[in-house]
């Protein structure tokens, strides 16, 4: 899986810099995300991970630098982006099904395609039975699955996930991590997964980028070349986890 040398770059980030007034948050960040890759970004709290994703999705403008998707400037109106937010993002006035369909509606998918994809993705995340429930009738882990299903449903060029499982308990997190890997393998999307949970990163990622404290740059990169399904107790797993932990400790 780690034939990165040969893989095509899906996203290229060049010298990305962000200042809020005088506060330099992101300092000259450059890296590539490969086509179909599941890339994790770990970094200390407040280092600018969310800011970074907001830049990638063009919710806020960069101070300097650029982001290219397939060689063109990133633009949510042209590119197919998805964002799974840390906060619950299901619209309470739409059913599970309507929430999942929302991204596809914006993309103006023909109704037949939309229905077909909708059914497939709901099957994939196990929400078919809850299709007509409202968000206040489902649990918060199901809500997060709705958000994930909505994000995958548009077949994104780039899927951004901002600590999507931060609020959930361990058991659900394991379950949803497996689910993420499964959907990603099935749909072959390019995924950028932000977390501060090292174990989570090693469990899901093909490659991990480690960020420094503010002003933030990419400190190093770790390729996780383990077969799936992965095992937390596998000595190789433990070794990589330790390696990442060390990298994070030494600023």
């Amino acid at each position: 899986m780690s034939n990165n040398g040969k893989r095509e770059a899906k996203v290229t980030v060049n010298g990305l810099t962000k200042k809020f007034g005088e506060l330099l948050v992101l300092n000259d960040i450059s890296f590539k995300v490969y086509e179909g890759e599941l890339l994790c970004i770990v970094g200390p709290t407040g280092c600018g991970k969310t800011t970074f994703l907001n830049l990638l999705s063009r919710l806020i403008p960069p101070t300097k630098g650029n982001i290219l998707i397939d060689g063109k400037d990133a633009d949510p109106k042209k590119h197919n982006l998805s964002f799974v937010f840390q906060e619950p993002s299901c619209m309470p006035w739409r059913t599970v099904k309507e929430n999942i369909a929302y991204g596809m509606e914006i993309k103006k998918l023909p109704q037949a395609d939309l229905d077909q994809r909708l059914n497939k993705i709901m099957e994939l995340v196990g929400l078919t039975e809850s299709a007509n429930l409202y968000p206040n009738q489902i649990s918060s882990s199901m809500e997060q699955r709705v958000a994930i299903a909505r994000a995958f449903a548009v077949n994104p060029d780039l899927l951004l996930m901002d600590e999507p499982y931060g609020q959930l308990d361990v058991k659900l997190r394991y379950y949803l991590e497996d689910e993420l890997v499964r959907i990603w393998q099935e749909l072959k999307s390019t995924v950028l997964f932000v977390t501060h949970n090292i174990e989570e990163a090693v469990y899901v990622a093909e490659r991990i980028l480690i960020l420094t404290n503010k002003p933030t740059t990419v400190k190093s990169e770790v390729v996780v070349d383990l077969p799936r399904p992965r095992d937390f107790r596998d000595p190789k797993f433990v070794e990589i986890r330790k390696q990442v932990t060390e990298l994070i400790k030494w600023w």
Binding site: L59, P76, K78, E87, S89, M91, W93, Y102, G103
Partner: peptide, 27 residues
């Protein structure tokens, strides 16, 4: 604001955000 950001990342226009997000949320 999360709903608005969510719609934005899908490329929704201002009018679509108003119609799909702001109005139902204000009801």
């Amino acid at each position: 604001p999360v709903y608005i950001r969510m719609a934005r990342t899908y490329g929704a226009s201002d009018w679509e955000i108003f119609k799909n997000i702001c109005v139902p949320s204000a009801l």
